[in-house]
Design a binder for these strands. Structure first.
Lengths: 202, 202, 202, 202
DNA sequence: AATGAATGAGTGTTCATTCAT
DNA sequence: TATGAATGAACACTCATTCAT
């Protein structure tokens, strides 16, 4: 009989995990279609679960968002590693990383907004996510600064926010790629020293 | 008799104008408290007019916002003129102008968002407002470029959007002035050439 | 000076009449597009007059409707006369008249409703209009009854209402002409005696 | 254990069903007072539920109406059965049925209108209701036609619409029973053949 | 006589969140 | 642990009607 209970418990847990994944998958789809402001009820309905279930797994919209983004972390970690080994220099690496952040924050329409809020006020599940990004940015930035390729008075947090802001400017219609690119370049020109140009001339 | 007619005409309009000003004042207050997403009905109620009256004057949230901002235009025009005559050089003028835009867009929480949308899609009363700003930015930028103080591949529209984005990063709590300042400096470093430093040395 | 005043007065009256016609023409157009439930404000706006002006001329939607219909009376009177002289017999005349009423009530979407209300409750400017129609119907009916072509227990008012109801069934989409025709025939079979069939056999 | 589950299931549903019945009862009352155009919000308020609850159960005014009418279906089915066995002949049965439809459609002021719309355009929960009625009408009509008591060129759909129209003529004030009766008789005379008169003479 | 600004109750609908089952 | 019914405040927007000018 204990076995039965255990089996049931295990079953329940599997069910819960299955539901979690189900919700996550549906939310990914739904947010991609309707932006991060989409109705949570609608997500629950599409996933075939009750709103209460969604709420139990993700008590907050931000919590759901954070879980969603953490699933995409793998890609970003891979990209980070690639940048580390493949970049021509540490400036190129930092630049590549910031552009990756811009793309990442453009995953869903309206995503930059909660990310900014989390970075600023830090009372959200997304704060942890953002912190990780700032840390990585700091690593790239420090390396570039050590090589004299980045100005020393630039802070990692500001660069992260600049990337977020660049993504925000793109807005819903990412059609205007030119603007996004232009801003990314502007930001790069903002943190880079003139030194590398000289060294490139060599 | 002409006077009578005038008086009558003025009278009729005075009533409407009084209401218009009343609504505008209330909206200013309300948006300052609740951000640009605040309830229009609530504004009407607080102003002591029916929702229809508000709607008659400002058929759209954006229309109300545009009217609100146009009231502030005067300050900005004044600032522009001051920058033209008082700035050390055209680079300082452009920098000052962009910082003015950043402040201006921070008037209400959430204001950067509709401004960005208007800049991008141009089907809103705010679009005109934004266009005016882009034009002024272009004037400052062109002057700086002529003096070799700004990179030639930078566009006015992107600088305006960068200012908007800087304001957006500040978010509701403008408490974090440091971040805003840092981003403004980053943007300046982004468009400025190194030349001026050299020329300054002259 | 008296002359001036008179001229002014005359001018005013001409203005008023012109406005009346203007409103009437616009309302005809607008009701044709949006049905009789269309916005009176919209009509005033399209006519280029204030809502107060419309209201002064036509204090009620029904008053406007009645004026509109009275303009169409001429057509109907003409049709009535034609029916009187051209019909094969008094039964054909009555039938023709009722079908004319059906068409007339289909002038605007939703028109049958206020007509029915006016016929029933008689406290509307449309009541007079309807009474005229009932009277004409009575004339045709009496003639047909005298010739033994219409059942004697049928009342003119009921025939008028039946015509209205037939028009109502057609509703907005008069596409379903078949239904309207079928109902008209049903009604005819309802009031006609079998006698005419016999006489036709001759 | 099955009992427990059942009880739970029933319990959960009982709550919803109780509300459903509550809303239905209130709507019945309210529509009887104010006609089918009455405010849905007001119904929710009077029922003591939130507007969302009403909306959950009945997403459309027509859906609510359909549910309301389906509750009355039972009476009508009973009446149909009685007509089948008790009528003197198939003509009397058809006549009785059509009068029953007239009464049924007079349940609320303004009800004939959505019914007609549903019959014509068929994109509403009421369409199903109407279809059922047309089908029953067809059964009675076919029987009468087989007995030579109804004209063969009459269609069931038109008879149903004629009944609706008769009900519509009655309008809000069912006071004018005479008119309703007169129209019902007119319609009957419209579809009935003269044959029965002959057979009656036997 | 005309204007048009003002009114304000009223509409259907949405949705994050709670909680009884 | 899951369900999904219930909540109810909130939203933008309309329009017949009045009335000061």
């Amino acid at each position: 009989m204990a076995e039965v209970i255990t089996r049931t418990a295990r079953g329940s847990r599997a069910d819960a995990r299955r539901n979690r994944e189900l919700i996550l998958g549906t939310a990914d789809e739904y947010f991609a279609e309707h932006g991060v402001g989409g109705s949570l009820d609608a997500i629950a309905k599409r996933a075939g679960v009750g709103p209460g279930t969604l709420y139990r797994h993700f008590p907050t919209r931000d919590a759901l968002l954070a879980a969603l983004l953490s699933d995409r972390d793998d890609e970003l970690v891979a990209r980070r590693e690639r940048l580390r080994v493949e970049s021509a220099d540490t400036a190129a690496a930092l630049d590549g990383w910031l552009r990756a952040v811009v793309d990442w924050a453009a995953a869903f329409e309206g995503l930059p907004e909660p990310l900014r809020a989390a970075t600023t006020t830090s009372a959200s599940p997304l704060a942890t996510t953002c912190e990780g990004f700032v840390t990585t940015t700091a690593e790239f930035l420090t390396a570039a600064q050590r090589d004299g390729l980045a100005r020393s008075d630039v802070r990692a947090r500001d660069l992260f926010l600049a990337a977020l802001a660049t993504s925000w400017v793109g807005g819903a219609a990412l059609a205007d790629d030119a603007t996004t690119t232009a801003l990314s370049s502007l930001v790069r020109a903002g943190w880079a020293t003139s030194a590398p140009l000289a060294s490139r001339a060599d």
